[in-house]
Amino acid sequence: MSAKQMQPEELYRRVGRLIESAPPFVGIGVLSVEQMTWLGRAEALVVSSGDLDARMEFALAKQGLSQPPARAMAQQRLMLTLYKVLAAAELASPPGAQGAFIPVGNSFDAYAAIAKVISAAKQDVLIVDPYMDDAVLTDFGGTLSEGVVLRLLTDQGTVKPNLTPAAQRWKTQFGRRPLEVRLAPQKALHDRAIFIDRSEAWTVTQSLKDLAKRSPAEIVRADDIAPLKIASYEVIWLNSTAIV
């Protein structure tokens, strides 16, 4: 498939990841291999969008990188162009794919994206996060429908101390919202993920407590590897220590 034939959803996800990995363009030296590689990928994606205005804007901004005093402004223009391409690709993507990329510092969109995923559950939600704290309950627990089981799996070495008392209060106050919390062995968890009804898998690029606060974040539906991920984490869940 040529670059110009890229589907909107694929373009949306690729541009989102590219924005997330943008290197800084500062200093007076020549551009590094990392910077040039990123620029090449960025330009290819802008071309694949088919937006001629965006293509021209990106080319003009890229020229500014050759002048060290103008690099900060040039990078801002590059990123503005990428966000424009991102927004257009998101609008053209299926509704289920929209909202997967969360810009830096946008806490409301972070909440809305997670809430949208969790609220779709009919029976069971398993949230995996090695650095889990009480935010998973205070921010997102209320989005579940009554009767849906919420399972929280975190790392016994990195879990935050406020999770257990929050979970105990939750069990006392919300009897019709089942909750289970387990601690996995240290370093057994390698992802931050959300599993819906044991059939749908979403990966999250940051811990829920930090989502989009310091750097861009993504929530991505992992359809192609969902069965493997679900099976793997169900095994870890069964071999973890229940605390609530």
Rank of each mutant, 00 (worst) to 15 (best):
V85S: 09
Q35A: 12
R41Y: 13
A54Y: 12
T154H: 05
M36A: 04
A44G: 12
A87Q: 13
D133H: 01
K116S: 15
A59Q: 10
Q123R: 15
E57I: 02
A54Q: 14
Q123L: 07
P68C: 08
L31V: 06
D109V: 06
D53K: 06
I102V: 13
W38I: 01
T81Q: 11
A44W: 05
G40P: 00
A72C: 09
G29N: 08
A113D: 07
R77T: 11
A92G: 01
V47A: 12
A113G: 15
P68D: 07
G105Q: 09
G99S: 03
M79L: 12
E43R: 15
Y131R: 04
S93A: 14
E43G: 02
R71F: 11
P95H: 07
L91I: 15
M79S: 03
V117I: 11
T154Q: 05
T154I: 01
L137R: 02
V46S: 05
N106V: 02
I118R: 03
D134P: 04
G141W: 00
L150C: 03
S119W: 02
A110T: 05
L153Q: 03
S145G: 14
M132S: 04
L126I: 05
V47L: 12
P94Q: 14
R77F: 11
Q156P: 00
T158K: 11
V128T: 07
T138D: 06
V33S: 14
R77H: 15
G64N: 05
K84R: 14
V30S: 09
T37K: 08
S107L: 08
A115G: 11
A89L: 08
Q123T: 11
D134Y: 05
Y83L: 08
G99V: 06
L31W: 01
A97S: 12
F108D: 12
P94K: 14
P95Q: 07
L126P: 12
S32E: 09
Q98G: 05
L137Y: 04
D109E: 12
V33D: 14
G141Q: 00
S48F: 04
R55Q: 15
L86A: 04
A121D: 09
S48K: 03
V148D: 00
A112E: 04
M73C: 09
D129K: 05
A113Y: 03
S66Q: 15
V33P: 00
Q123D: 12
M73K: 13
Y131I: 04
A113E: 02
D129R: 02
Q75H: 15
T154L: 02
V46W: 10
M36T: 10
D129F: 00
F108S: 13
D53H: 05
Q75T: 14
L60Y: 06
N106E: 15
R151Y: 10
E57M: 11
A121E: 03
A72T: 14
